[in-house]
Design a binder for these strands. Structure first.
Lengths: 187, 187
DNA sequence: GTCTAAATAGACAGACCTGTCTATGAGACG
DNA sequence: CGTCTCATAGACAGGTCTGTCTATTTAGAC
């Protein structure tokens, strides 16, 4: 059981802090202290704090894709694949419960980024991809208007995520899962 | 045309900056410069920066209530009153377009506040109230399960708001309005 | 064993942050 | 006029921020 690389530990520590306290409120010093790493190790692995933020955003997106792939792998119908999108969200949310659940890390990050910051594009791309997965599986499930329904499912999912984050638990997300099952199930 | 009070100008400048750049990223100095006011005027009117943030959150909530009241006043049916909730969101969103639309200011603020901060309760209370308005008008409109439907409408509205903010325009919000009209219209 | 690449601790610069203090000016009201 | 309240400019303290630099140590490849 060898210790992970400095880069990995930095990214992990940054992810925890960024998610729990916000990006602007998290200082470099707190991250390196949590990671147990020297400051130069951070600047050798990342160009700057905002480079670290970009890596954080991309890592969260990648993590979600992996959770989604895992859910997809165990799905046996188009309807289950629609739900796989939602379940990946729930999985991702619950992975971050350690210091309190605070909703979607990517949307929270975007909330701190002014218009025009490149990080916002990463988040927008992620959400567009999620919506695309909905459309794909809804179409396979025989939905009459999969694009329209994908928007609907997307809205329900993102709204539930935001409200779940405010409440600090995943009950709204579970309710959203039921709603989306009804929306998608009733062709 | 007399100049507004220092307090008013400070709150206005803070609201603009907080919404456009985020709360942590906005310094006191930028606010007083925008407001054209001395630093002591800020600290005479607000206890601290976080007191100013609380005033900002409460002001946004109040502003929304006023927009909602205005929409309610011109509504003539229960269904129109359901839509008044959505229209108040759209009105509020479009009022902040000046430096770029970035979604719901209250949710964005909550995204910066760690779990336990009192500001989060203000935002959660606002969202609970919005959901309550949906339930009230849906029930009056003869909805079979107004509580359940209110959650559904709430999710759609908040999700569309978040995605609209990412895109930087209100097209998702307009789509949500159509969806909510269908949800509520079909008893 | 040696060479190389990565990681370390810690000082440091320079900017920016919140919040306080002082001394002064301007307008309202009696 | 005198008083009172509010606002002003600006210096200031004390802390924190990002990012750089140096000199040293560790760890792995060959």
């Amino acid at each position: 059981m060898t210790k992970p690389s400095a880069r990995t530990r930095i990214l992990q520590a940054a992810a925890d802090r960024f998610y729990a306290d916000g990006i602007s409120a998290t200082g470099i010093d707190a991250i390196i202290a949590d990671a147990g790493v020297a400051k130069m190790s951070l600047y050798n692995n990342f160009e700057s704090k905002s480079g670290l933020v970009m890596a954080y955003l991309e890592q969260r997106h990648t993590e979600w894709l992996e959770l989604y792939a895992a859910r997809l792998a165990s799905s046996t119908s188009a309807l289950e694949r629609v739900l796989a999108v939602v379940d990946a969200y729930i999985d991702h949310a619950e992975a971050g419960y350690a210091h309190g659940f605070r909703g979607c890390g990517l949307l929270n990050a975007a909330a701190e980024l002014p218009v025009g910051e490149p990080g916002r594009a990463v988040v927008a791309g992620h959400k567009a991809q999620v919506r695309g997965f909905f459309a794909e599986h809804l179409e396979a499930n025989g939905c009459a208007d999969p694009q329209e329904m994908a928007s609907h499912c997307s809205f329900v999912l993102e709204g539930a995520m935001a409200l779940s984050g405010l409440e600090g638990n995943s009950s709204a997300l579970r309710k959203a899962r039921t709603l989306i099952l009804e929306l998608a199930g009733g062709r």
